[in-house]
């Protein structure tokens, strides 16, 4: 007699995640974010955050000394790396390497691979940042970590409910007129953006982060007034899904994409130029084996 199992809740998944090695992600991201937001923060604060995670510290140093930056001198400390590469570069490097850890393994599905999801996440983050900087002349500091984490909910579903997640992917493969997150809602009762929202909230990340992840498919529902972040995240995500490093393609939200562009006063052609340049960079990283 099969026991009737209570359907899994978002809360169950959050608790499971916090008891797994994914949980160390939250602390690091929160700390790095604090540094970005605190005007008095110094290079040494970033240094401290990175150095308290020895494997991350080693990864950052290894990457700093890799061919990508082609430095003439060997970087021996995080402090040194910040001086040579710049604060933002080191910060992004640390975020990439830390968040990437979670995507750097797992099942290979016919249509899905965690590594592919990571490539997508990285592309979304870089695209979003570049849009902010090149079109809106803003720093883009905040959007980068949010974009990296926007699909973290999928990782959680895959990690703790692999059978059901595979079921979602199978259904999506047979009928790609459906939105992937709609299938999730059917199977789980919620989708990966809701899981990501709960998780970021649990990790005590800022409310606008949580909000952007929650509404990255539906930016018009964002609860943060005047925030551009959900829109840019949505725009970058949409572009990547459709023509860039994609995970799924979603077609029938094109009108929303146009609305979002209009809302921010952006021009699709200009955005696509930015996106395509960015993706070239991502593909280059992939070729050189530097995604993780």
């Amino acid at each position: 007699m099969a026991r009737v199992k209570r359907p899994v809740t978002i809360r169950d998944l959050v608790v499971k995640t916090n008891n797994s090695n994914i949980s160390s992600l939250g602390g690091i991201v929160a700390k790095i974010n604090e540094i970005i937001r605190n005007p008095n923060a110094q290079a040494s604060d970033l240094m401290t955050v990175i150095e308290t995670d020895p494997p991350l510290c080693a990864k950052v140093l290894r990457r700093a000394n890799s061919a990508v930056y082609a430095l003439r001198q060997e970087v021996k400390s995080i402090r040194h790396a910040i001086v040579i590469l710049g604060f933002n570069t080191v910060r992004e490097l640390a975020l990439n390497l830390k968040v990437g850890e979670v995507f750097d393994n797992g099942v290979v599905h016919k249509k899905y691979e965690r590594r592919e999801l990571w490539k997508h996440s990285l592309a979304v983050a870089m695209t979003a940042k570049n849009i902010l900087q090149m079109e809106l002349k803003a720093q883009g500091d905040d959007i980068y970590p949010v974009a990296l984490l926007h699909d973290i909910g999928s990782i959680v579903l895959d990690e703790f409910e692999p059978d059901k997640f595979t079921e979602v992917l199978d259904i999506y493969e047979q009928d790609n007129t459906l939105m992937e997150w709609d299938i999730e809602k059917k199977i789980f009762g919620f989708d990966h953006s809701a899981v990501g929202q709960a998780l970021l909230k649990e990790w005590k990340l800022p409310f606008d982060f949580v909000d952007a992840v929650a509404y990255h498919h539906k930016p018009f529902l964002s609860k943060v007034p005047n925030s551009k972040t959900p829109y840019i995240l949505f725009i970058a995500d949409y572009l990547c899904h459709n023509t860039g490093p994609q995970f799924f393609s979603y077609n029938d939200v094109h009108h929303k994409f146009e609305q979002a562009l209009e809302k921010l006063g952006l021009e699709e052609k200009a955005i696509r130029l930015i996106a395509e340049d960015t993706w070239q960079a991502v593909y280059k990283l992939e070729e050189e084996g530097l995604l993780f």
Partner: peptide, 15 residues
């Protein structure tokens, strides 16, 4: 396109 790219480069430069 060149105009857009110029704009982008200028913006990026200021950032």
């Amino acid at each position: 396109i060149l105009k857009i790219k110029l704009r982008h480069v200028q913006n990026l430069a200021s950032v």
